[in-house]
Design a protein around this nucleic acid. Sequence first.
DNA 1: TTGTTGACCGAGT
DNA 2: AACTCGGCCAACA
Length: 140
Amino acid sequence: MKKYLNQKDLPSLNNGKKTAEKADKPASFFLTVYKIARQVPRGRVTSYGAIAEASGLKITGRMVGWAMAAAGGAKPAVPAHRVVNSKGELSGAAHFATPTLMQELLEQEGIEVKNNKIINFQSVFWNPATPGPKKRVTKQ
DNA sequence: TTGTTGACCGAGT
DNA sequence: AACTCGGCCAACA
């Protein structure tokens, strides 16, 4: 599998001018996804779908996962280990340097992982769409 | 160029 | 409870 070492190597970015016909839209959702992922605080996690939703772009969790797969060498680093699926499972663990690395990183941040799944997922979940106080539910 | 495949997700069978 | 399916975008074969 091909790996991207840094942003310059990413496909379809601004310099690629392929998808950048309009200026009011990002040329690629990669950067948007990375930006959101980097806001996840230490000791908290979010989900692929939540990032997709918060991006405001028409992308789905699948695309976020794909972006994460390419995030390996991105600078600044993307805390991809803090992104799990909607059930709190470490579905991306296999993509790390070692199959156990993702879990180890999470445990270092005080997150309990058992059976490839986060314990107390609900309480450590961090929603990028509502990062602040959890009042105000502007959902339509 | 067309078709298949994802670190997904929720709704429908 | 297990399974399929549509939606999304880009990369491969």
